[in-house]
Design a protein around this nucleic acid. Structure first.
Lengths: 218, 218
DNA sequence: TAGATTGTTAATCGATTAACAATC
DNA sequence: TAGATTGTTAATCGATTAACAATC
């Protein structure tokens, strides 16, 4: 099946498949069926087959999917078969955490430059990268062919940083600040705002465990 | 409109509404229409009205929504009108980032205990909380009435930590580790795995900008 | 061969959007 | 009053699931 436009829901599941496949490979399991993948991920096997079939015929009838082969294919689909350079702005704790994480990750996305606006941060080392001042952002992005920008600054500065990234020519932005950012349509923006995950989690808690027995909302 | 079961998609939008409302309140704007909210958030106004109408009649025909009133209502819906105590396991950079962020946030979710397995971390201070050893987790959760657990440990330890949280009786878990965790149905689990956001972002990049002009996937 | 499992079509389910009467 | 905007029903759109022929 070819090039219907792929829905976001499908794309968001691909990294999850990849995660499980990595684990299977680690455990030296050669082959997996959509059935078993579905069990691991709480997903319908038909959905998994359909997701994968958008991109090609990766499985074998009667057998299932070859783990390594499928990993390769999903990596290709996600464009992780090429090196993708990433820049990060905001050398705080979160910025540190991402850089560190990245250091140990085995995929082709690499944070290759870190920026911060605060003079006290500039020049400090985050795993063998020197923190650079903001005015070097544009030139660095061009020079290193950086294609993705990560924003880990406070909310009130996030839009400015996004503007700088757009101006510098990145294709995608991953924003960790709790702010809604406006960018041109051709730049893809993803939000990774954990406060939102936390707040929506609260919805599912039981109400009023102790005392304070107010009437209901409605 | 009352108690149809509310879909997850709706619940996940509530914190976003809250975010915009906060900003409007800050700018001393009293009232907003679904139209204008929709413009700010790139959402269909009908959807916003429908989302809110699941929970009550919060708007006024011909006028719109009162900003403060709607904030109060959404806070109630999300149960943020009560104090919700949170524990965090994993005092690394990411753990630090979350604690710090939390310190400045004005809502009622508070990280009130931090744990780590590593002896060198135990006893160290993260904004006026002492990092506690894992064996105190259960008792502390009970004692402080902790209802949500945050996991910021490496992937291979995440399931163990989740088990401890479940055993201690938390109602919800926010997992930052790139791992699929199994928990009983009665415990709600949300994932905040930025690697997945990053990988799915890569999908939307242009393919092969320089050289290496391979044939297509299919 | 018989059993397993894919890729795909058709059926179902759910979420988004349009439209509009009610009303501020 | 006239204009604006809600809450809600009906229409549309899209995503998930079931079912099954093809085939390893």
């Amino acid at each position: 099946m070819k090039h219907t436009k792929i829905s976001e829901a499908v794309v968001r599941r691909l990294p999850i498949y990849l995660q499980v496949l990595k684990e299977l490979q680690h455990r030296e399991i050669q082959t997996i069926s959509s059935q078993d993948l579905g069990l691991k991920l709480d997903l319908n096997p038909a959905q998994i087959r359909k997701d994968l079939a958008y991109f090609g015929d990766f499985g074998r009838k009667g057998i299932g999917y070859d783990v390594s082969y499928l990993m390769d294919k999903i990596n290709q689909i996600l464009k992780l078969d090429q090196v993708i350079n990433v820049a990060l702005v905001g050398a705080g704790n979160l910025g540190h955490a991402l850089c560190n994480y990245n250091k140990y990750s085995k995929d082709n996305m690499k944070i290759v430059a870190v920026f911060d606006a605060h003079p006290s941060k500039i020049g400090s080392q985050i795993n063998n990268l020197s923190v650079l001042p903001m005015h070097e952002l544009k030139a660095t992005v061009k020079q290193l062919g950086i294609r993705i920008g990560i924003i880990t600054v406070p909310a009130f500065e996030a839009q400015n940083v996004a503007n700088l990234f757009v101006e510098a020519g990145v294709e995608g932005i991953l924003n960790f600040a709790p702010a809604i950012l406006k960018v041109p349509d051709e730049v893809r923006i993803h939000h990774a705002d954990f406060t939102q995950e936390l707040l929506s989690l609260a919805y599912y808690l039981e109400r009023e465990r102790n005392g304070n027995d107010e009437s209901n909302l409605d």
